[in-house]
């Protein structure tokens, strides 16, 4: 039994289509969101990135009808969400907000159990699911299930928030700057965990952020939004970094576009050159890194090349400055970041 038709058949996500979606607030001359159209493929992680007040959050909140669109249509898995009862709809869409919004008077376990209880799951099924999810987000149930939110650090609270959003296994997740309020180190950890999680659950996710680097790091595709949520460019991170559609997108990328692209290129797929020197003469790098790590090592050590050496001590090849430059040129404009 499933709310969205194909969610039962496919374990991952379902598609989201927005068609000419407009939001106009009464008494305001210009619309906040102006005929926004976009299609998100099943299992895709799409980032909405844009400056504060550009309407990206409003656009996202229309999908679970926290904000009602003025006109246009929104379909999840081909089903028009504006024709569904909003409360029922929201129980099947994961929702994570920046302020987390954990219920302070409930334990972490009760917080995570919120949607399963709304859906009338049995006690046993709910508690098993809560335990499983706390493991998934790396909060040991024995330690955290019966704590209250204020007894957790910011990063732990946000992980509990993600667990709560995933509780009823919704095919679609909406995330509004979920890591925005955490410090840089915590944020990087949460991002890495989030990528690991998404690679195993494959939800369809719309993720709002104002941090372009976060968008590059996490997104399958990025929608760069301008005023009134106009789509300035919608493409893979590599394609946007390689060929920004206009000055606005270029200014949003900021400086160092090439460096950001290098961070998207894993060493595993890189073209390595033959090493003509004995192992140990040049600095070595693990193949789990990116081209950016290679460049970083070159700059720091002043060496002419780095050896890429795997865990067993076998040299896969070497990288020089020239190889790294060539990688930037050689990458096809689209699909470069697909991994």
């Amino acid at each position: 039994m499933s709310f969205f038709p194909s969610a039962a058949a496919t374990p991952g996500g379902v598609s989201i289509e927005l068609d000419q979606v407009t939001k106009t607030y009464p008494g305001q001359p210009a619309s906040a969101v102006d005929s926004f159209s976009l299609r998100v493929e099943p299992g895709e992680l799409v980032m909405f990135v844009g400056p504060s007040g550009c309407g990206k959050t409003t656009t996202m909140k229309m999908i679970n009808r926290i904000i009602e669109p003025t006109s246009g249509s929104i379909r999840i898995d081909g089903q028009d969400v504006l024709g569904l009862p909003p409360d029922q709809l929201r129980r099947h869409i994961g929702y994570v907000i920046q302020q987390i919004g954990l219920f302070p008077h409930m334990t972490i376990a009760d917080n995570v159990a919120t949607v399963p209880r709304l859906l009338g799951w049995s006690r046993k099924r709910t508690s098993e699911r809560v335990e499983e999810l706390l493991h998934t987000v790396r909060l040991d149930p024995a330690q955290f299930a019966h704590r209250y939110p204020r007894q957790l650090s910011g990063g732990q609270q946000q992980r509990a928030g993600v667990a709560r959003a995933l509780a009823a296994d919704p095919p679609v997740m909406l995330m509004d700057e979920p890591f925005g309020a955490t410090d840089p180190i915590t944020r990087e950890g949460l991002q890495a965990e989030f990528l690991r999680l998404q690679s195993s659950i494959g939800k369809t996710i719309i993720f709002v952020t104002h941090d372009f680097d976060e968008a590059v790091r996490l997104g399958d595709r990025i929608a760069v939004l301008g005023e009134r949520s106009r789509i300035e460019q919608f493409d893979t991170p590599a394609a946007i970094l390689t060929a920004p559609a206009n000055d606005y997108v270029a200014s949003f990328i900021g400086s160092g576009a090439a460096l950001k692209r290098l961070a998207l290129l894993p060493l595993t797929g890189a073209r390595l050159s033959e090493a003509a020197w004995p192992l140990g003469q040049q600095p070595r790098l693990d193949p789990a890194g990116t081209m950016r790590d290679a460049l970083d090592l070159l700059v720091v050590t002043g060496a002419a090349a780095v050896d890429v050496v795997d865990g067993s001590g076998r040299r896969l090849g070497a990288l020089t400055h020239g190889d790294i430059s060539a990688a930037l040129v050689g990458v096809p404009a689209t699909g470069g970041a697909a991994s």
């Binding site: 926290i66 929201r90 929702y95 302020q99 987390i100 919004g101 954990l102 219920f103 302070p104 959003a165």
Partner: peptide, 27 residues
């Protein structure tokens, strides 16, 4: 009651009555 808490409750699909009984009144 914190607006974010209320929004989270609504966003998870609580009806207005459920938000009141389970979140707003206890808080």
């Amino acid at each position: 009651v914190d607006e974010a808490t209320r929004e989270a409750a609504r966003g998870m699909g609580m009806t207005r009555g459920q938000v009141l009984r389970r979140v707003e009144l206890p808080l």
